[in-house]
Amino acid sequence: MPSVTLTVNGKSHTVDIEARTLLVELLREKLSLTGTHVGCDTSQCGACVVHVDGVSVKSCAMLALQAEGTDVLTIEGLAAADGTLHPMQEAFREHHALQCGFCTPGMVMSAIDMVMAHPEGMTEEDIRHNLEGNLCRCTGYHNIVKAIAAAWPVMHGKELVAAE
């Protein structure tokens, strides 16, 4: 049986797996990191989004073996060791950007990725466009958009001015 070695949330793991194992299956079933969810089977919903080497990926559309040697960050790894939440987590709570909480981990991971990728600023339209790979059935997105806009200045340490 093949094995994969990777770092997840700062911790190195070597795991024996079938070649057909998806990254999300490795996280949920082998590493018991069940915060990353599976909401569809066509890579549409984004509930499974994690960061691999610093960028968002859909962990249901990546083999675990493809993650060999990578650094994976999941929702469980966002808060500081002392429990201090990431600004995006805080913003989601403050702005009621979640209801059932199922899409939330993927939403938060996508949101962090988009904010980091847009240091020049984002409009509401930019945020909505960048959420196109994440489905939420509860919130109507309104508060998710608000939360991301609120986290942007905290993450960048400057006021959010919409880029031209």
């Binding site: 989004v49 960028v55 968002s56 990926v57 859909k58 996508s110 196109e132 790979g133």
Partner: peptide, 9 residues
Amino acid sequence: IGDNAVRHR
């Protein structure tokens, strides 16, 4: 094409 996460792969 796709979305951010899809474009990353």
